[in-house]
Design a protein around this nucleic acid. Structure first.
Lengths: 212, 212
DNA sequence: TTGCATCCTGACCGTATGGTCAGCTTTCAG
DNA sequence: CTGAAAGCTGACCATACGGTCAGGATGCAA
């Protein structure tokens, strides 16, 4: 066995290990919550000795913070869909698609985010009071404009946003419940598609953007 | 100070202490999750020595199980609204009202329930596979009937139910986020009312039960 | 009043966990 | 080639936690 693998340059090592740790941490935090997660479990899942975790992330809190911030980035990126849109049909459709895709591809991240908010956002409070608030205010303005332009009914923009967040996020956070009610099987591609279409149809019709 | 208070009969003592413990436990489990909650914290909040908790609830798991089952009862009771209804407008309106009231009155319970499901329902798996599944199947049948009778559009009943659960539950589970975006203040009675009306209007219109 | 079951609790225990550290190996710039 | 910086890790530590228990206090039926 000559070492055909790994020259492994310093930079690569660091990047690769941090990635593995963050991935493992995301899963463990999602499954057990912050309090229930242990560094040992994360280390085992990442395939590293526990002490090595502390080399990259000094404390459990710091590791958790990194995981949560990663999710928040992804979450915010889905926002772009909204901006480019010409009206509610485009914008909200794209946003629902994007957020459902996050629920499907990053269920663990979604759960960590949900858990963080449920526990009073100890880590993200700053972000919520700055970035999230700005983002929300911006989208509220866009929706108001759409209403003024007669492109949709006068629905309270904030409650509409909450509805979008709730319905899409639900498929990740309550995925286990949905799976159980689906006969113990994860939703198929087809079922994910149906979910998206149902949500889009009900909401877009509900706000008067689509003909009833 | 003569003891005008407390003759405190045995039965009363037991009932009162169990109530206090369950209330405290609900709050602590909601705020910290199962793993993050400590018996000491619960005991302090209930105003009892820790050892006394173990007199009433042998283990942390048993206490947690009691809390979760309590919530599940409340959750299921909101179901009755559905049955008595003559059509989607009555039924879904009443269900949304009931579930929003739960989110408002029992935010801690809602969070514990959400947390339990998010972590794979280790305690409630049995219930989910029996009671919840039956309940869901029953409601799906009712919605199908409404669709057949032309009282609403042919929306997938399951996804509609998920939407109802998600939107209403969101106001409890993500209450902190909503509060932050509301300028740091809890929703007023008026705002709760608006939330309910928005949700009802969008969904009922969205499924074609109300005129657009 | 008595005896007993229930209720209560301070002190204690074993374990698991987050975190530390001394000293090793590996990479790489000069 | 060499020295220093980066990466790695087994062994260890202090603490906090869930849970136990012996024995005291209290309510109550007879």
């Amino acid at each position: 066995m000559t070492e055909s693998t790994r020259p492994m340059r310093r930079q690569d090592i660091r990047r690769e290990n941090e990635r593995a740790i963050l991935l493992a941490a995301e899963k463990v935090f999602a499954e057990a919550g912050f309090g229930g997660a242990t560094m040992q479990l994360i280390a085992d899942l990442a395939g590293l000795p526990k002490a090595n975790l502390h080399y990259y992330f000094a404390t459990k809190e710091e590791l958790y913070r990194s995981v949560v911030q990663n999710i928040f980035e992804i979450w915010l990126q889905a926002a772009n869909c909204f901006d480019a849109a010409r009206g509610p049909i485009d914008g909200i459709s794209a946003y629902i698609d994007a957020k459902m895709e996050i629920s499907r591809r990053h269920p663990d991240g979604s759960k960590v985010w949900a858990s963080e908010v449920m526990h009073g956002a100890p880590v993200l409070q700053d972000y919520m009071e700055s970035t999230l608030r700005e983002w929300t205010d911006g989208r509220v303005a866009i929706i108001r404009r759409w209403i003024d332009e007669g492109k949709m009914d006068p629905v309270d923009p904030r409650h509409l946003l909450y509805m979008l967040w709730a319905t899409t996020q639900h498929y990740a956070d309550f995925g286990h419940q949905i799976e159980t009610l689906n006969g113990g099987k994860p939703l198929s591609s087809r079922q994910w598609q149906e979910a998206k279409e149902n949500i889009k149809r009900v909401i877009l019709t509900g706000i008067g953007a689509l003909p009833a």
